[in-house]
Nucleic acid binder design. Sequence first.
DNA 1: TCCACTCACACTTTTGAATAGG
DNA 2: ACCTATTCAAAAGTGTGAGTGG
Length: 465
Amino acid sequence: MQSIRDLKANFSGPPPSAMPSSDAYLQGSIRMTLEDPELWRTFHGIGTEMIITKPGRRMFPHCKVNLSGLIPCAKYILLVDMVPEDGFRYKWNKEKWEVAGKAEPQPPCRTYLHPDSPAPGSHWMKQSISFLKLKLTNNTLDQHGHIILHSMHRYHPRFHIVQADDLFSVRWSVFQTFTFPETSFTAVTAYQNTKITKLKIDHNPFAKGFRDEGTTKKRRANKNQNDPDKKAKLSEMNRDSGEDSPTGFCRSSFEVFEGDEAELRKRKERDEEIKDERYSPWSTERERNNTRNGSSPAAEPRDIYSAEQMVPALASYQPYRFQEYGKSPSPSSSVGSSASGSARASFESRVPDVAVPDQDASKPRPHGAAPPCAPQPLPAGSQDYPGLLNASTAPGSKPAVLGHHVYGPYGAEQPLGQWSGSAPAQYPPPHHLGADYATPAVHHGYPHGNVTEWSQYPLFSYSCW
DNA sequence: TCCACTCACACTTTTGAATAGG
DNA sequence: ACCTATTCAAAAGTGTGAGTGG
């Protein structure tokens, strides 16, 4: 498996006026590094699970990256979306994940926009960039702009860095995409693997109350003291935790984190052991994949975990709809197909809309933007939402700007592989935008019926502003 | 009966307003 | 009047376990 290099090409080209300066295309390589990769690898070694809930749940570990190679004075926008790992649904069976059938049709695809966006390269590079407030939900009708996922499906986050002065010019901008293999996870509504639960409890400060040495024991004891069955169950759990955690998962890793370097080294060594020796819940699936890909897990180079991606400057591309998208299966489009590894480098056909964190709802919006999340019923088959771009889009303005809010990634007539078959019409428009958008009419009247039209649509449509 | 899912709960950290002190 | 530090309460983020529904 490779770290991503989604090199997308624009074949239609923007109007010269909208083109970034030539410098943009000659910029140095952008480098993105995953923060705290050891923690991610620890989780990944066991089989990361992320809880998804109706109101939305944060990820843990949460996505945090470092960027370098940006032009300090140029503005960039940072986005994250979630890409299905493969075309399967899973179930937890006897301590491991098993394929339980074909994946369900893709839920409405959304992209999380980092709240600092847009910001100059110097801003992004001076500190690590946290996506702490990104939330995952299983509510396909979610109105908060959270990223919608299916439970018991596997995903990985995908980071986009877009050179753009503002959100209006995203379409015309250079952007690059990064993924980190160790960030893949299974979306669940309740933890399946108790080892993951323990890891989360040990590392997530909010779950401190469940750590064994803490009050949890007392609380559980109190709760269960009158119930012999529960007591037995609990003691069994405790016994398990002892057996399952030879590497000290039950200890408060926070203490280790904050301890001296020697302790940290020890912990890293433990983690390495874990990764090498621990039974992998993904073994069967990996074997399957490897059979397809013709490589064995053991032979897989260690840099599968590479947290660092290099994207050559010339690989920069512009987010135009590629006319052949429909023929270019993406990893996320492999529902029903199986290849996940080989497809990773192919063009992405998903066209997410952009979700904005709740906390930004009260912030002033540029260009007289409409308020966030104003529900706006859309024509059937359309999953796109009007964004602030609408308001400033004058008649006769460039199609890119118009395109920001008219593209419907889930339209039934889409020719894309991912949305073909039963997928497209499965999800009605979520209507999660506010009703007070000023220019709903812009949605209508845009043909979605063929790939030629497709090419006029932007990479991102904005779901919530 | 099984399993995925939801919800209320206790516990924690985070956030922001109010206040005090320099 | 301004800035900084401290305190406190409310809000938000956790996993748990019971209950529900298919």
